Computed example of a mutant assay.
Amino acid sequence: MKFRTWLMTMAIAAVSSGCAAYPRLLNTPFDPGGRSLNSPAAETNPDIAGRYIVFVSEREKRQDIYLYDLQTQRTIAIPGLNSLATVAEHPDVSADGRYIVFAGNRQGRSGIFLYDREIRQLRNVTGSLNATVRNPSISDDGKTIAFEANLNGQWDILVYNRSGQPLDLPTPPR
């Protein structure tokens, strides 16, 4: 379950049960070397799915994506994901932690990038789309990616499969 969905579910449950809801603090160790969830650097855009938290951090003096395993309480190596040539934003992770999707900017052009941890492959799934893109989200099973695209002077939500093909979703009758 995605963090935003989980947070909404917890808020609804707290309100409907009549009890006060207090935020839970993740009690993770601080590591000045940057191998934990907490570090001296700014951590932004966190998203949680299953036992994984994905976020952007400036630990290496640039915006890189980090993956944290709540079960082992350690960051997970993601070789081939981060690049000096890409500014990364708004990451999301599949529930099993295999797929990470994020908005990236390379040489002034935005794209939605998908990283497969199993085969260590990074791909731009919107390479053929002539639009500015942002705010991707990936389904728990990692098969579907939704994101915003500015195609015709307005922001629309597009849905692609992880191969980078747009999905033809039915529209409700009017």
Rank of each mutant, 00 (worst) to 15 (best):
K2V: 01
F3N: 08
T5H: 10
L7V: 14
M10H: 11
S16M: 09
S17H: 04
A20Q: 13
A21H: 07
Y22R: 12
P23E: 07
R24L: 12
R24W: 10
L25S: 09
L26V: 13
N27K: 14
T28V: 13
T28W: 06
P32A: 11
G33S: 10
L37V: 02
L37G: 02
S39D: 10
S39T: 10
P40Q: 13
P40Y: 15
A41W: 11
A42M: 13
E43S: 12
T44G: 10
P46A: 02
P46R: 04
G50M: 00
Y52V: 03
I53C: 01
I53K: 01
V54S: 05
V54K: 05
F55E: 08
V56K: 12
S57Q: 09
R59A: 07
R59L: 06
E60T: 13
K61D: 12
R62M: 12
R62S: 10
Q63N: 13
D64K: 12
I65F: 05
Y66C: 03
Y66R: 05
L67D: 02
D69K: 08
Q71A: 12
Q73M: 12
I76T: 07
G80H: 03
G80I: 03
N82A: 03
S83Y: 13
L84S: 09
A85V: 07
A85Q: 11
A85H: 14
T86L: 13
V87F: 15
V87N: 12
A88K: 11
E89W: 14
P91M: 06
P91V: 06
P91K: 07
D96M: 05
R98E: 04
I100S: 07
V101W: 03
F102C: 08
F102L: 08
G104P: 03
N105Q: 14
R106G: 02
Q107M: 11
G108V: 02
S110L: 00
G111P: 04
Y115M: 01
R117I: 00
R117M: 01
E118P: 04
E118S: 09
E118Q: 11
I119H: 11
R120D: 09
L122R: 04
R123N: 09
N124R: 00
N124K: 00
N124D: 12
V125L: 13
G127Q: 13
S128M: 08
L129D: 00
A131F: 00
R134M: 07
N135E: 11
N135I: 09
N135V: 08
S137Y: 03
S139Q: 03
D140V: 06
D140N: 10
K143V: 00
T144H: 15
A146H: 01
A146T: 03
A149S: 07
N150L: 10
L151W: 03
L151S: 10
G153Q: 03
G153K: 01
W155D: 10
W155Y: 15
Y160P: 05
Y160Q: 04
N161R: 12
N161Y: 04
R162F: 07
S163I: 05
G164M: 04
G164C: 03
Q165I: 06
P166A: 08
L167G: 02
L169E: 04
P170Y: 08
P170V: 07
P172N: 12
P172F: 11
P173N: 08
P173R: 14
R174V: 09
